[in-house]
Amino acid sequence: MKTQARIGRVAVVVAGLLVWELLTRFDLIDSDFVSTPIAVGVAFTEMLRNSEVLSALASTGGNILLAFIIGTVIGVIAGTVMGLSKTLWQAYSAPLLFLMSTPKSIFLPIFILLCGIGSTSAVVFGAFEAAVFVTINVAAGMALVEDRHMKVARAFKASWAQTILAVVLPSALPGIFTALWFGIRHAFIGVLIAELWASSDGVGGLIRVYAEQLHTDKTLALMLAVTFLAIIAGTIWNHLETRLTRWRQSSAAGAATTTATS
């Protein structure tokens, strides 16, 4: 089954590439607009030796890392405070949830106006995106701490620090993990969006420049490389998360009933 599924996945991807190639080959769609798989492959190998691309990757990577760190630190602090105080949660969760499901790109002009065109606004915007998601998820994770487990800590005379270590952190771990994942993902998207919209450097800027010059093959090669990195990072993260919160699966039924009633 497992190998069958693996073969199946490869088959679907190969079929997709084949359809793409054939459609362009028989001029059913214009290869100027969507390029061809072979051209993209060639562009990809060339790209690996292109210093312009490599330095763009490095600078974007650095921006993402910086945005992630700033956004996560702000988000973890804000989320912890909101998770601990019911009043603050009640007051600010609704505006934050609205902000979370609002396309953050509409605020991009503010960042560009205030921080100028370039790396700074990309980092600040990425940090902003990340912070919104991290805050909500950390706060939601804190809400997973169950009263009955807190009661155990009290009844067995845990100190404040012991309660945090033995009860609050493990309960909130799945939420914290989700929060960190959203931090990475949105720092990544935020930085790239900012670069794509108004910057000529970094990967986003490069994608725009290539697209404007109608280098479809290069554009796609770069996009697919970034996509590939994103998918790999996501898959690794999923595995890591499953490993670290494994107890949740063995008690999945119990967890489901407790969340349904609490």
């Binding site: 607009f33 969507v34 990544f188 794509l196 986003g204 290539y210 479809t216 554009t219």
Partner: peptide
Amino acid sequence: WGYLAPLILFYPIFILS
């Protein structure tokens, strides 16, 4: 994979097509 892919970057392709 489609979910994880940063589709927001793919816009130039849609403009071209």
